[in-house]
Measured scan of single mutants.
Amino acid sequence: MEQGTVKWFNAEKGFGFIERENGDDVFVHFSAIQGDGFKSLDEGQAVTFDVEEGQRGPQAANVQKA
């Protein structure tokens, strides 16, 4: 798993971006967030995640709040 920081996340649209430790950004969809209840992330929040190849390039999977 990688570690990163939430760059931004739009809860209304259900997606955002995580900044990886290497400085690259990776797309995150709310469906990739682990846990119960409303799935959202806060700007600046530390997270761990896997990276999978999506239809439009790399995207975060198995996102967990650190």
Score class of each variant (00 low, 15 high):
1 M>P: 12
1 M>Y: 11
1 M>G: 13
1 M>H: 13
1 M>D: 08
2 E>G: 08
2 E>T: 11
2 E>H: 15
2 E>R: 08
2 E>N: 11
2 E>S: 11
2 E>M: 14
2 E>W: 15
2 E>V: 12
4 G>W: 02
4 G>E: 01
4 G>P: 01
5 T>V: 13
5 T>E: 05
6 V>A: 03
6 V>N: 01
6 V>Q: 00
6 V>D: 00
6 V>K: 01
7 K>I: 06
7 K>T: 04
7 K>H: 06
7 K>S: 05
8 W>A: 03
8 W>R: 04
8 W>D: 01
9 F>L: 03
9 F>V: 04
9 F>W: 15
9 F>T: 02
9 F>I: 04
10 N>L: 08
10 N>F: 07
10 N>Y: 07
10 N>W: 12
11 A>D: 07
11 A>G: 09
11 A>Y: 12
11 A>E: 08
12 E>F: 15
12 E>I: 14
13 K>H: 10
13 K>C: 07
13 K>R: 13
13 K>G: 05
13 K>E: 04
13 K>D: 04
13 K>Q: 08
14 G>S: 03
14 G>N: 03
14 G>E: 02
14 G>H: 03
14 G>A: 03
15 F>V: 05
15 F>T: 03
15 F>K: 02
15 F>Q: 03
15 F>A: 02
16 G>I: 01
16 G>N: 00
16 G>W: 01
16 G>T: 01
17 F>L: 05
17 F>K: 04
17 F>G: 02
17 F>Y: 07
18 I>P: 00
18 I>F: 03
19 E>L: 15
19 E>P: 01
19 E>Y: 15
20 R>T: 08
20 R>P: 04
20 R>M: 08
20 R>E: 02
20 R>L: 06
20 R>Q: 07
20 R>A: 06
20 R>F: 05
21 E>G: 11
21 E>V: 14
21 E>Y: 12
22 N>S: 12
22 N>F: 12
22 N>D: 11
22 N>E: 11
22 N>A: 11
23 G>L: 11
23 G>F: 08
24 D>K: 15
25 D>H: 11
25 D>V: 12
25 D>T: 12
25 D>E: 10
26 V>A: 03
26 V>F: 04
26 V>T: 04
26 V>H: 01
26 V>M: 07
27 F>I: 03
27 F>T: 01
27 F>R: 03
27 F>G: 01
27 F>Y: 07
28 V>P: 00
28 V>S: 01
28 V>C: 06
28 V>Q: 00
29 H>P: 03
29 H>L: 06
29 H>K: 03
30 F>N: 04
30 F>S: 05
31 S>H: 08
32 A>G: 08
32 A>D: 06
32 A>R: 06
32 A>N: 08
32 A>L: 03
32 A>V: 06
33 I>W: 04
33 I>P: 01
34 Q>D: 08
34 Q>R: 10
34 Q>V: 14
34 Q>M: 12
34 Q>G: 08
35 G>H: 08
35 G>E: 10
35 G>N: 07
35 G>R: 04
35 G>L: 08
35 G>F: 09
35 G>D: 09
36 D>H: 13
37 G>Q: 06
37 G>N: 07
38 F>V: 09
38 F>I: 08
38 F>K: 08
38 F>L: 09
39 K>I: 07
39 K>P: 07
39 K>M: 07
39 K>E: 05
40 S>C: 10
40 S>H: 12
40 S>A: 09
40 S>I: 10
42 D>Y: 14
42 D>V: 14
42 D>A: 13
42 D>I: 14
42 D>R: 15
42 D>P: 08
42 D>W: 14
43 E>A: 15
43 E>Q: 15
43 E>C: 10
43 E>R: 15
43 E>I: 15
43 E>P: 15
43 E>F: 13
44 G>P: 02
44 G>D: 05
45 Q>T: 10
45 Q>H: 07
46 A>Q: 13
46 A>S: 12
46 A>F: 12
47 V>E: 00
47 V>N: 01
47 V>S: 00
47 V>R: 00
47 V>L: 04
48 T>Y: 12
48 T>K: 09
49 F>D: 00
49 F>H: 01
49 F>T: 01
49 F>I: 02
49 F>Y: 07
49 F>G: 00
50 D>M: 14
50 D>S: 15
50 D>R: 10
50 D>N: 14
51 V>D: 02
51 V>K: 04
51 V>N: 03
52 E>D: 08
52 E>S: 09
52 E>I: 15
52 E>N: 09
52 E>Y: 14
52 E>P: 03
52 E>C: 09
53 E>T: 12
53 E>F: 13
53 E>Y: 13
53 E>K: 11
53 E>R: 11
54 G>K: 08
54 G>A: 08
54 G>E: 04
54 G>L: 07
55 Q>F: 14
55 Q>V: 14
55 Q>N: 12
55 Q>M: 13
56 R>N: 11
57 G>C: 04
57 G>N: 05
57 G>S: 06
57 G>E: 03
57 G>R: 06
57 G>H: 05
57 G>M: 04
59 Q>K: 09
59 Q>E: 09
60 A>P: 01
61 A>K: 13
61 A>S: 10
62 N>V: 04
62 N>E: 03
62 N>T: 05
62 N>H: 10
62 N>M: 07
62 N>P: 01
63 V>K: 00
63 V>S: 01
64 Q>E: 07
64 Q>N: 12
64 Q>P: 01
64 Q>S: 11
64 Q>Y: 11
65 K>Q: 09
65 K>N: 09
65 K>S: 09
65 K>F: 10
65 K>L: 12
66 A>H: 13
66 A>G: 10
66 A>V: 15
66 A>Q: 12
